[in-house]
C-alpha cells in the first residue's frame, strides 16, 4: 500500500529513532510522527509532552535490538513482520514497552514463548 512506501523511506520524515549501544549509535530510523502516534501509546505520550524528544523530533533508545526495532517499525507501517526464534523475545519486549496498538500482537507473541 502507499503507507508501506513510507516505511524507512527518507521522504517527508519528521522524526528519528536512534538505537545506541555503549554510547555508539547503531542505527538511525527515519520515521513519521503520524504513523508512530497512531500505532503506539508510548509515542502518543511522547508526542504530546513538551519534553526534549518532542522538541528535537528525535528519541534515543539504549540497548534495543536493532533488528527487533526494525521489525516493530515494519509492523507499525505495514501490519506484518517476520518472527523467528531469534528475534521473538526482543520484539515482545519492545512491543510491550512501547504499547504497540494491536490487541492481537502481544498474545500472539506470548504464544511462541510458552
Amino acid at each position: 500500500s502507499s503507507i508501506e512506501k513510507l516505511y524507512l523511506s527518507p521522504e517527508f520524515y519528521d522524526f528519528q529513532i536512534q538505537i545506541k549501544q555503549n554510547e555508539r549509535i547503531q542505527r538511525t530510523f527515519l520515521c513519521h510522527k503520524t504513523i508512530l502516534w497512531s500505532r503506539s501509546e508510548y509515542f502518543q505520550g511522547l508526542l504530546r509532552s513538551q519534553m526534549k524528544e518532542n522538541i528535537e523530533s528525535k528519541v534515543i533508545f539504549q540497548s534495543f535490538s536493532v533488528n527487533a526495532m526494525e521489525s516493530i517499525l515494519r509492523f507499525m507501517y505495514t501490519g506484518s513482520m517476520e518472527i523467528n526464534p531469534d528475534n521473538v523475545i526482543d520484539i515482545l519486549l519492545i512491543a510491550k514497552r512501547l504499547f504497540i496498538l494491536d490487541e492481537k500482537l502481544i498474545p500472539f507473541l506470548y504464544h511462541f514463548i510458552t
Partner: peptide, 15 residues
C-alpha cells in the same frame, strides 16, 4: 519546565 527533560529517560526509569 519540561523542555529540558527527556521523555524516554523518565519513561525508562519508571519502566
Amino acid at each position: 519546565n519540561a523542555s529540558t527533560l527527556s521523555f524516554e529517560e523518565l519513561y525508562r526509569s519508571s519502566y
